[in-house]
């Protein structure tokens, strides 16, 4: 995350250049060598990145006995849907977790994004005299923090939020980094737009909502994706603030429990009347992992374009 934050935005409102004009240059041998190495390395590294996913997907379609005998492999061993059948035989838990996570992700991303954009905009307004103090007020929390234990005690004993989804939902709404990143993005919106709005007699909030916000789609996509990832992948706050107080745990925390405790594994397929020793526990864990991760990975190609261009806007210009 800090990568993007460090970005020095373009000072003028010049659109990011993603396509370079072709270089009319004669290529010598070293160019071809470099290009060869590049293809090879990139391909290797990409494979390296994909490999573990293949391993997990294969395992989820393998038979338990084959895994126990031969271990995990790159291709499914004795292909079967058995593990998925178990999960969807009593899908109450997993569906409940899905609903909780989807609601939190959608609502959290929408609200967080709006608040962050609003704040980022106000803090970037050159004529806003409090922008330095407020920026520092927010930035300071990255320099010094209360620490886990005092925060836990504060949130659970004084705010009395333990056992409530709000404890997780609220704490993930924003981070200082995202606000600062948004501030940098806003800078790429020409100030003339604000001024033209003022001339038309629009209020500050109206200028933001009607004029600035529509110009920030890549930024919103990028920060929105960060927020959505934060909500979707959340397990840590849940382990502290939800535990077993709620019936439906957020998806990744549910997965965390399934992976780490046999009890949770059995409970997740409760109702299917089986003893834990008869459960295909290894493949069941893998299938749960696939089910819990699938949507965010599937969603990625659709946002990739915005994401890359968003980061590029925010990224450092030499």
């Amino acid at each position: 995350m800090s990568h993007v934050v460090a970005a020095k935005p373009p000072r003028k409102a010049e659109p990011p250049r993603t396509v370079k004009p072709p270089r009319k240059v004669r290529l010598d041998r070293s160019d071809y060598v470099l290009r060869g190495i590049s293809y090879l390395t990139v391909a290797t590294f990409a494979t390296f990145c994909a490999l573990p996913f293949i391993l997990i997907i294969s395992a989820s379609f393998s038979s338990e006995s084959a895994i126990m005998r031969d271990g995990f492999g790159l291709l499914p061993r004795e292909f079967t849907f058995a593990a998925y059948e178990y999960i969807f035989r009593a899908p109450r838990q997993i569906i409940g977790s899905y609903v909780v996570t989807i609601v939190m992700t959608v609502a959290g991303t929408a609200i967080g994004l709006f608040v962050i954009a609003m704040t980022g905009y106000a803090l970037q307004r050159k004529d806003f005299p409090f922008r330095n103090s407020i920026s520092f007020f927010i930035y300071f929390t990255t320099l010094f923090s209360a620490g886990l234990a005092p925060t836990f005690i504060w949130v659970s004993r004084y705010l009395e939020l333990r056992g409530s989804y709000l404890a997780v939902f609220l704490q993930l709404l924003m981070t200082p980094w995202l606000i600062i990143l948004m501030k940098n993005f806003v800078r790429s919106v020409p100030y003339e737009i604000v001024e033209s709005g003022k001339i038309d007699g629009a209020g500050d909030f109206r200028i933001f909502l009607r004029l600035v916000l529509p110009m920030m789609k890549p930024a919103l996509a990028t920060i929105g994706l960060f927020l959505a990832l934060g909500y979707w992948n959340e397990w840590y706050l849940s382990s502290l603030y939800l535990g077993s107080t709620v019936e439906f745990k957020p998806l990744q925390y549910h997965l965390y429990n399934i992976i780490n405790t046999a009890n949770a594994l059995r409970n997740s397929v409760a109702g299917s009347n089986v003893s834990i020793t008869e459960l295909p526990s290894n493949t069941l864990k893998m299938a749960s992992a696939v089910v819990a991760t699938g949507p965010i990975v599937l969603a990625y190609p659709f946002v990739q374009r915005y994401f890359v261009s968003g980061i590029t806007v925010g990224a450092v210009k030499g």
Partner: peptide, 19 residues
């Protein structure tokens, strides 16, 4: 290749533990 290389960034650390 870009898409594949970003993939690990999208998954939760819980899944990394599983992997």
């Amino acid at each position: 290749s870009q898409a594949v290389m970003f993939l690990p960034y999208f998954i939760s650390v819980v899944l990394i533990g599983v992997i």
